[in-house]
């Protein structure tokens, strides 16, 4: 259990760097545990573990050096043939609330995991997508601004 918790914390740490949102905001979406299990369910514990291990290495090597962190993220994870597309999928998952099927090129080389198809993990994933605070809007049809508030100037919370 504590091992799972440690892996989850790594997942959140990686997600922070991938999305630019803090752990507090990421957890505040209520999607953290769901997205972590989505990752492991789709690509498997082994591959998910590889990604988190790579992230741990990057974080340890970069320390407090933000420039180095960004360079290592690009060279060790985003440019990695196997891990890069998965990391990009995590970005899309957090922002759009959809797991997109991994690219055909990835599937040709690394296999076709049974659950790797495009899907929305939960109805709340759409509502909690980070794209909404990023573009300064409410998700269409959700997080209602309140009846009649459209008569007033928009009031969007800060990112």
């Amino acid at each position: 259990m504590s091992g799972d918790r440690a892996e989850f914390e790594k997942f959140l740490g990686l997600s922070e760097v991938l999305t630019g949102f803090t752990k507090f905001r990421l957890q505040g979406t209520g999607q953290g545990a769901l997205y972590f299990s989505t990752l492991t369910d789709v690509v498997g514990q082994g591959t998910a573990g590889e990604l988190l291990q790579a992230w741990s290495g990057v974080a340890a090597a970069a320390g407090q050096d933000e420039g180095k962190l960004e360079r290592l993220m690009r060279s060790e994870i985003l440019s990695h043939e196997k891990l890069g597309p998965i990391a990009r999928n995590l970005i899309k998952l957090w922002f759009v609330g959809t797991w997109y099927q991994l690219p055909a090129a990835w599937r040709e080389v690394f296999g076709t995991p049974e659950r790797d198809r495009s899907f929305v993990p939960a109805a709340s994933s759409y509502v909690e997508g980070l794209l909404w605070p990023t573009i300064g809007a409410n998700p269409t049809g959700a997080k209602g601004p309140g009846y009649g508030t459209w008569a007033d100037p928009p009031n969007i919370p800060k990112v």
């Binding site: 507090f24 505040g28 209520g30 309140g146 508030t149 007033d152 919370p157």
Partner: peptide, 19 residues
């Protein structure tokens, strides 16, 4: 009307803390 709009925003702060 505006106050009800604020209530929806406060709900988001509420949920964010609890999660």
């Amino acid at each position: 009307t505006a106050a009800v709009g604020d209530m929806f925003r406060i709900k988001e702060l509420f949920l964010r803390l609890m999660r």
